[in-house]
Simulated assay, not measured.
Amino acid sequence: MASRSVSLSRLPWRLASSRTFTTPPPVSVSVRHTPSHLGTNRFHVTQRRFFAGHTPDRIPVSVSSLYSRVDKEPILAEIQRRREERGLSIDAVAVELGFTNVYTAQILMLQAPLPERMKETLKGLLGLDEETLSEMGRIPHRRYDEDVLQEPTIYRVHEALMHYADSIKLLINEKCGDGIMSAIDFNFEIEKIKGSKGEDRVKLVMDGKFLPFTEQVKEQK
């Protein structure tokens, strides 16, 4: 049996309450290593000590309790009503917030959190009350209704992605390597442009960080 101590400057965030996350302070961890009868390695944390005088940083992050589109509907209807009353397009709101129009739409659809620094700006634009702005600032449950694929606008975009899927993968791999495009470190914008014959056309611009697959190297003894 072998024993060793490991110093960790930080542990992953843990849930301190139903609504608030905290970042724990530096800790000292004693780890006992015991090979199992199957030949695999087992590690057991036997001690944790917080350094004296350290106060954990408290980061007030609220998580929304609204799970489904039905739960969100009253707030969504109010946001839409206020926007229509003021004649504001999503592009106009996006300019004031400094975000892409798709990300702005995500905020207005409760699919992305409204940053604290933008609350007064949006309040001035739409005249929303504090309760609504507070809910918009919470971390949302990012969900979609599977029935949305029956909507022709969405179905055709989905159809295009599926039809071109193999070519999209081929080009991403050829240009960047073995990996994927992130949908987290990601920018998305929708533009209306004119075609060569003067017709209206839709332009979707997706810009995501390339994330390579990692090699899973087994530690050699």
Results as ranks from 00 to 15, higher is better:
Met1Gln: 06
Arg4Tyr: 09
Ser7Asn: 12
Leu8Asp: 07
Ser9His: 15
Arg10Met: 12
Arg10Leu: 09
Arg10Trp: 13
Trp13Cys: 11
Trp13Glu: 14
Arg14Ser: 11
Ser18Pro: 10
Thr20Gln: 05
Thr20Gly: 04
Phe21Ala: 06
Ser30His: 09
Pro35Ser: 07
Asn41Thr: 04
His44Thr: 10
Val45Asn: 03
Thr46Ala: 10
Thr46Gln: 09
Arg48Val: 04
Arg49Pro: 00
Phe50Ser: 09
Phe51Asn: 03
Phe51Glu: 05
His54Gln: 07
Thr55Met: 06
Pro56Ile: 13
Pro56Asn: 12
Asp57Met: 13
Pro60Leu: 00
Ser62Ile: 01
Leu66Tyr: 03
Tyr67Ser: 13
Ser68Phe: 07
Arg69Val: 01
Arg69Leu: 02
Glu73Asn: 06
Ile75Cys: 02
Leu76Asp: 00
Glu78Trp: 10
Gln80Met: 01
Gln80Phe: 01
Arg81Ile: 05
Arg82Lys: 15
Glu85Ala: 13
Glu85Tyr: 08
Ile90Gly: 00
Ala94Asp: 02
Ala94Arg: 01
Glu96Ser: 15
Leu97Ser: 07
Thr100Leu: 07
Ala105Gln: 12
Leu110His: 09
Leu110Thr: 07
Leu110Gly: 05
Ala112Phe: 05
Pro115Glu: 05
Glu116Phe: 12
Met118Cys: 06
Met118Gly: 04
Leu126Trp: 03
Gly127Thr: 11
Asp129Ala: 02
Glu130Ile: 04
Glu130Met: 05
Met136His: 08
Arg138Glu: 12
His141Glu: 14
Arg142Pro: 15
Gln150Asn: 09
Glu151Trp: 15
Pro152Gln: 00
Arg156Ile: 15
Glu159Trp: 05
Leu161Lys: 13
Leu161Thr: 11
Leu170Ile: 08
Ile172Phe: 11
Ile172Val: 14
Asn173Asp: 09
Cys176Asn: 10
Ser182Val: 07
Ala183Phe: 10
Asn187Glu: 08
Phe188Arg: 15
Lys194Glu: 06
Glu199His: 03
Glu199Phe: 06
Arg201Pro: 05
Val202Asp: 04
Leu204Thr: 10
Asp207Phe: 03
Asp207Ile: 03
Lys209Thr: 12
Phe210Glu: 00
Phe213Pro: 04
Thr214Asn: 03
Glu219Pro: 11
Glu219Gln: 12
